[in-house]
Design a protein around this nucleic acid. Structure first.
Lengths: 346, 346
DNA sequence: TTGTAGGCGTTATCAG
DNA sequence: CTGATAACGCCTACAA
C-alpha cells in the first residue's frame, strides 16, 4: 500500500524519463523550472515518496546509531540520551532512541530486532546482564558501548560515575555535619528480580558507606542498613519508621539513590522528625526528585553530559575500526549540598 | 570503513555463489549444514553485516515510524512514547524516537533530517508551530500526526486532552471546597518565545477558569491572574508572594500545569500559609511533579496511554492510504484529588 | 535540457 | 543442494 508510487510511475505520468523526475525532485540545477514544477505537481498528486532504502543503498549507509534506554517510568536517562544526540549529530550521525519495553530478556530482544533497523552501533543504558546483551550485539554484528553501573561483570566498554568515591563523599559530608547514626536505605528486590542483589553500584555505594564509617571510627550497625520498596509516590517508608520506633537514634539517612528519598522524607515528617534538624537526608544521582522534594535533597550529581558524550565518542571510534578495551570508564560525581543536610549551608 | 564487507566478498572467500551465502546467513532450509556453518564462520571472520538498506529495498520498506519528542529537561512525554512503541510494535512497526535539540526552528530541522532516515511517518509531540512542521513533512513526503495542544491553528490530526473540561473540573473542585479567591498561575514567556502567548492549552485552561468562576457567580478578578517563571527548583514564586502581601486574600491557586506548583507551594510555605488549610493548590497534567511535592498535588490527569495509542493508530492508518481529517481528537482527563486540596479527602 | 543505462547489496526464481 | 540472474528504486555519468 504505502510504498507504491515510484520514480518510474511519476515519469510515465509526466511523459518524461525517470532521470528528469529524479532531478526535479532533488534540487538539481539541470532542469527547466517549467518541467520541474510540472513534475513536482504530478509527484505530489500521485503521492510520491522517495524510497529511503533505495536512496541509502545508492549512497551507502545511513550513519545512525542507536541508544537503548530503560523503560523506567521517569526518564533519568534523558540527559544521557541528549548528550548522545548532540555528540553524534556533530559527527553527522542520526541517533535512534529505542525504549525497552519490559523484563530483563527484552533488552536482548530489542537488540535482536535491530538487525532490521539501519543502525551501525548501539549504546545501551543500564544493562541488567551485559553478557546476554553482548551476545545479542555480536549476533547481529554491531559494536556497542554501555552506560551502566549495574552489571558486576562487564562485556562492553562501560561508562559510569564514580560510585564509590561519590557515595563516600556524601557520607563524609554527613559525618562532617556531626551525624554518626547514619541509616543506609537500599531498594528492596521486587519479585524475582534477584538482579538487584548483584547490582554493582549498590555494592559500591554500600562499600563506601561502610568504609566511611570505619574511617571515622564508627562501627557499622547492620540494623541501620534497611531495604525498602521503591515507590516515589508512597506515603512513607515503613522500615525507616520501624527504626525510629525502635529507638535506633538515627540522625541521618543515606538513600542509595534519590528516588528512595521521597518516602523516607515523608516517613520522618509523619513521625514529627524535622529534616535536617533532627535527621539529615542525602541521596545519589541528582535526579529530578532531588529538587522537588521538601526539603530539597543533598546528593551526588552524576556527570551525565560527560558520560553520554564519552560513550558516543567511544562508539563512533569503534565504528571506524577501533576496538575499544572492555573496561570501566568512571566519571567523578559532584557533591550538591541542599537543605536536607543543613550544616554547611551557612 | 564500516559497511564494506558484502555478500560477494564472503562468497568469494568461501568459493561459493552469493545465493548460497545469502541462504546460509538467513535460516534457509536449502543449505547443507556443513556449508552453512563454514560460510557463517567465514562471514564472522570477515565481519560481514547484511546491508539493512539493500534488504529493505528488496523487501519493500522498513516498517518504522518516528516519534519526535520535545527536549524539555524532564520527560513528561515518556508515557506517550511508551504507548506509541507498544501500539506500533503490535502492528509490526519499529519506533524511532528523535529528541529535538533546541529552539522552535529545529523541530522542522529534525523532520527535514528524516529524509535520510528509514521512517514511514511521524508523530510529533508538542509542536510550537504546526504549519512549519507540516510543510517539513510534506517536503519529505511523509504523513504525520500531532500529539499537541499548543498550536492554535492545526495542520495535522491533533491529539490532546480535554483542556477546557479538565481545567473546569479542577476549578469547580476548588469552588466546591468552598474556595472563592482563586489565583490562576500561568508561565511567563521567557525571552523571545512569544509562542506561549498563543498557546492553545493555556487559552483553554484560562477560559475554563473564567467560565467556572462566572458560572459560580464569582466575578473574575484580573489581578489574581499572574505570570511567573517556570523553574521547578526555584525557591519561590514572587508574583504569588506579592499577591499574598497585598492582601488579595487568596484561598486557592490553580497552576496552569503541575510544573508551576513547586515554586507556588514553596512561596506559600515561606509565608506561613498552610496548604490546604489556608490555601488549596491544584495543577494540571498529573506529572511526576504532582506526587513529589509536599503536599501532593490535586490535578487533572492526562490520559497519555490513550493519546499515544490513538496517535499511532491514526498514523498507521494513514500509512495504508487513509488521509485522516485534520481535526482535534480530545481525550477526557481525570480529576485526581490529593492532599493539596483537602475538602473531600475524608 | 533531457533520456539511457549501470550499479548499490539483497533476496527470490529458476535452472542445473 | 547450489549457482547464475533478475529485480527492488534511486542516483549519476554519459550520451543525445
Amino acid at each position: 500500500m504505502a510504498q507504491r508510487v515510484t520514480l518510474t510511475d511519476v515519469s510515465q505520468a509526466a511523459g518524461v524519463g525517470i532521470a528528469t523526475v529524479s532531478r526535479a525532485m532533488g534540487d538539481h540545477p539541470d532542469v527547466s523550472a517549467a518541467t520541474r514544477d510540472r513534475i513536482r505537481k504530478i509527484a505530489l498528486e500521485l503521492g510520491y515518496r522517495p524510497s529511503v532504502a533505495a536512496r541509502a543503498l545508492r549512497r551507502g549507509g545511513f550513519h545512525a546509531i542507536s541508544v537503548i534506554v530503560p523503560d523506567t517510568q521517569w526518564g533519568w536517562w534523558e540527559p544521557l540520551a541528549h548528550a548522545c544526540v548532540e555528540t553524534a549529530g556533530a559527527a553527522g550521525y542520526q541517533v535512534l532512541v529505542h525504549p525497552v519495553s519490559g523484563g530483563p530478556a527484552s533488552l536482548a530482544d530489542v537488540i535482536a530486532g535491530l538487525s532490521d533497523v539501519p543502525t551501525e552501533g548501539v549504546i545501551v543504558i543500564s544493562v541488567p546482564d551485559q553478557k546476554a546483551v553482548r551476545e545479542a550485539c555480536d549476533r547481529i554484528g554491531i559494536p556497542g558501548v554501555a552506560i551502566d553501573d549495574t552489571s558486576v561483570d562487564i562485556h562492553f566498554p562501560s561508562i559510569s560515575a564514580t560510585n564509590y568515591e561519590g557515595a563516600r563523599e556524601v557520607v563524609e559530608h554527613l559525618l562532617l555535619g556531626g551525624r554518626s547514626r547514619i541509616a543506609f536505605v537500599r531498594p528492596r528486590l521486587s519479585g524475582g528480580e534477584a538482579v538487584w542483589g548483584e547490582t554493582f553500584y549498590l555494592q559500591e555505594r554500600e562499600r563506601a558507606y561502610r568504609d566511611a564509617l570505619d574511617a571515622a571510627g564508627i562501627p557499622v550497625d547492620e540494623s541501620l542498613i534497611i531495604d525498602t520498596a521503591l515507590d516515589e509516590g508512597g506515603s512513607g517508608c515503613p522500615e525507616l519508621g520501624e527504626l525510629v520506633e525502635n529507638g535506633a537514634g538515627i540522625d541521618a539517612v543515606f538513600c542509595a539513590f534519590d528516588q528512595l528519598a521521597p518516602t523516607a522524607l515523608r516517613e520522618l515528617a509523619t513521625r514529627g522528625l524535622r529534616v535536617p534538624d533532627d535527621v539529615a537526608v542525602a541521596g545519589f544521582d541528582d535526579e529530578r526528585t532531588a529538587i522537588l522534594v521538601t526539603p530539597q535533597l543533598t546528593t551526588a550529581r552524576q556527570p551525565y553530559e560527560d558520560m553520554g558524550r564519552t560513550a558516543t565518542e567511544l562508539l563512533l571510534r569503534s565504528l571506524s575500526g577501533d576496538r575499544p578495551a572492555i573496561e570501566r570508564h568512571e566519571f567523578p560525581t559532584q557533591l550538591v549540598v541542599r537543605a536536607s543536610t543543613a550544616h554547611d549551608m551557612d
